[in-house]
Design a protein around this nucleic acid. Structure first.
Lengths: 187, 187
DNA sequence: CGTTACATACCGTCCAGTCGGTTTTTAAGA
DNA sequence: TCTTAAAAACCGACTGGACGGTATGTAACG
């Protein structure tokens, strides 16, 4: 007895999905409350009933996508033995598993954060944290942790901004190279 | 006899400088024609007299910054012996020489292109070209050309978006690692 | 009957682009 | 050198649309 038909899914989630969809279709400029409302199948007032402002909507979207990203990376990490190379290997594994598949999430995450200084803070904190962990690695090849991090950052951000779009064939050699780098972290 | 005193500099260049300045101070959202006009010391009508639309202004700014970037990289390349490693080495040298100094240009370039689909095309073409050259390198370590490219892309774009800000001390080991990668291109 | 979940109409602001007019520069003629 | 007319550069008020947010109404549910 999950209700009549309004309980099919909670609106807040539907609205976030709609916002992500609008972002993916039209970029950051297209993200208006009206557009989100239309995509979600309700009115502007309806959207603003759940999210008090556009900024709040963006912040919620960024928070959701960021949480998902953290979970994905953590899930990759548990399959790798602990050690200095665990995090870099997990990040490469995450790219391998999600770059071609989850096009949407990562793009929406970045595009959303571009329009809200508040949401950007969360994203920035996440990026700084990851960079800090990787750059601290002091294996036989110092600096390669940072190289790995920025290569992945460039891969995702560049695509999100429409600079490039790698296919499997072009991605494969690069991932292999990143894996060699990650393996070196153990010394 | 280089003219009276209005020929000190042509307005179009002054306007582009003003636009870049506005972008660096307030981000993409602050880039309005009025703001550019105020920064350049003239009125909105004056700006629109030289650039027919905001999009044209952005396109001109991106074109200028992109041309400068190409020149800088080319200048780095002439000091390096020809061969497979010439371009990767030149790009790393460019980062070494300009990352800390030319903060402004690269940031303005990116921020500007985000607000104009037309200007984004030029930027995209440049990125695709560079990536194509580097990924084609088939040394003993395939894929490392792409790694180098994306690491530099992430370094610049990430900073332009405010995700990080590396100092000399953090940059140095990474550059050394990139140089090792570049050297490997010769086989 | 109160609360939640919307819809509709509306307001204020911001901003790109227009337009008619004014000033400055340039160039040519006397 | 002075005059003058055309051209280029520039100003500032205005317009129209887009968009964030508010206010008010209303239908369903418990």
């Amino acid at each position: 007895m999950q209700g009549k038909r309004k309980r099919l899914a909670d609106r807040p989630e539907i609205i976030l999905d709609a916002a992500a969809s609008v972002l993916l279709k039209g970029g950051a400029r297209a993200l208006t409350i009206d557009a989100v409302a239309a995509e979600a199948g309700l009115s502007k007032g309806g959207v603003l009933h759940h999210y008090a402002s556009k900024d709040a909507l963006i912040a919620a979207l960024v928070a959701r996508e960021l949480a998902q990203l953290r979970e994905e990376i953590a899930a990759c990490a548990v399959e790798i033995p602990p050690g200095p190379s665990q995090l870099p290997k997990a990040m490469v594994a995450h790219v391998r598993g999600h770059y071609c598949a989850d096009d949407e999430s990562s793009r929406a995450l970045l595009l959303a954060s571009l329009d809200s200084s508040e949401a950007l803070k969360d994203y920035r904190a996440f990026v700084a944290d990851q960079l800090g962990r990787l750059s601290r690695i002091e294996g036989p090849c110092p600096g390669e942790g940072s190289v790995l991090f920025f290569a992945i950052l460039g891969l995702f951000i560049g695509r999100a901004l429409g600079f490039h779009q790698l296919g499997e064939a072009e991605l494969q050699p690069m991932l292999a190279a990143l894996e060699r780098i990650a393996a070196r972290a153990d010394g």
